[in-house]
Nucleic acid binder design. Structure first.
Lengths: 250, 250
DNA sequence: TTAAAAATGATTAATTTTGAACAAAATTAT
DNA sequence: ATAATTTTGTTCAAAATTAATCATTTTTAA
């Protein structure tokens, strides 16, 4: 295995994983650590990776959205389960909306290899899907650094310019009495416009949010056609949502 | 087995496997290693394969895609000098356009602490400015993964919605005869609309691009009011640009 | 046929790459 | 803050690869 081949593998791994460490590379490529270090030194010299203590990182956009990745790790299992179900509802050629929720974000790995168009206002989603088979359309507007997403008049106008088959949206709360609720007006606005401009709306919502109302109730349950949730969801509550007209997948 | 036959087999193998090594080729083609080396030297001389230590590999695998950050590091000194000058032209409260050129990208560190609004179609620029004092407005649209930026109808429409004091734009070529030229139609479109919607247009252009024409000439010199360049710029050329109406800063 | 030219192989020296050992620097834990 | 650990840089030696030189074989052409 010569330098060129190692270089390929290292770069691939850095691209795929976001970061690598010397030990694992040495083991994986079956070569000494000192050589890996030399390789990394060359690659970072060329500006192709960012050298860290003990390894290297992807440079470019990787920095900021990483913080989001960690946040989305709360209830990761449930969210992944939900996303895996959601991905089954997507076909090649689809045009889909994805909002800036942390559950929706976890849909990315499941759709990277699909030839679909994604319209999103979420920076982390875009970052995850760039360079994949997915064609990404980012919703423009003022960027909220905290939410890592675009919101506002221009963003909703942008969304209105497009027509999607499916919208995959997160909500912060859902209840029979007050419908869907969000933690901020801004997010609600995006949810509404994405839903309005897509043929079918999927709600990605873990069971922990059932019968919880958040700061800003903004829509009836009927905004969505399908609710995708996890297996711990209470049967009785599900039944009541079904009666309200939602198709529930779990 | 003569050279022509070996050449064919070597090329086939390189194509199929991606990479080959001298030892195996010598064994496989039943010929000495030195001959294989000579063959590889000829093939690589002709640019048909990439010679590595101990073997050879496919050109496409050996050549690595230059990342944006890496590209921006070419002529970094000149670019930084230009950007430092450009930053002096920015005041608190300004609304500025920044395009997706690699020179413009390097303006980011100089403006991070300014309370201004930046409208940009460049992902790296946005990434650099997020979390700083700058308020970032990202131009939406289809994201070109290679250029790391948004282009197209929706992007230009988005730009038209805003009015900026100043536009900081890169060009790929500039000449007295043919004006400004770009490497792609898409980039030219963005440059034009940013310039049209800002009060003053600054061209950030290192002297290496003077009197060079690129693929797509798209505007006369008069599109910009000010040209910011480096100190190595030829005095005579500068004089001619000044006569054409440009204010030149260096 | 026979000399000249070209291609190949063998040997050896030079170069490049890799690995090992250890001190210096940086990071982490106490 | 201090000690322990990890990571890194440096130096040197070993191994692998290549380049150079020259002899041998094969091909070419008069």
């Amino acid at each position: 295995m010569n330098f060129q081949e190692r270089k390929q593998k290292i770069l691939d791994l850095v691209e795929k994983e976001g970061s690598v460490d010397v030990k694992r590379l040495a083991l994986h490529l079956d070569i000494s650590e000192i050589t890996i270090r030399r390789d990394l030194a060359i690659l970072s010299e060329k500006g192709m990776i960012y050298r860290t203590h003990g390894g290297a990182m992807k440079l470019s956009l990787a920095h900021d959205p990483i913080s989001f990745v960690q946040k989305s790790a709360v209830n990761a299992d449930k969210k992944d389960y939900i996303c895996q179900l959601a991905a089954k509802g997507i076909q090649e050629g689809d045009v889909i909306f994805m909002d800036c929720g942390s559950t929706v974000f976890r849909l990315c790995p499941f759709i990277r290899n699909m030839r679909i168009k994604v319209v999103t206002n979420s920076l982390p989603v875009m970052s995850q899907l760039l360079g994949s088979a997915v064609s990404v359309n980012f919703v423009g507007g003022e960027i909220d650094p905290e939410r890592q997403a675009a919101h506002g008049i221009i963003a909703t106008e942008h969304i209105r310019r497009y027509r999607a088959n499916k919208a995959f949206l997160g909500v912060d709360g859902i209840s029979l009495a007050n419908g869907l609720s969000a933690a901020s007006e801004k997010e609600a606005e995006i949810t509404l416009s994405m839903s309005a401009n897509s043929h079918e709306t999927f709600l990605l919502c873990d069971s922990g949010k059932f019968e919880k109302d958040r700061y800003f109730p903004f829509a009836p349950l009927s905004l969505a056609q399908t609710l995708i949730t996890d297996q711990e969801a209470d049967a009785e509550i599900i039944e009541s949502y079904k009666k309200a007209g939602l198709k529930v997948v779990k």
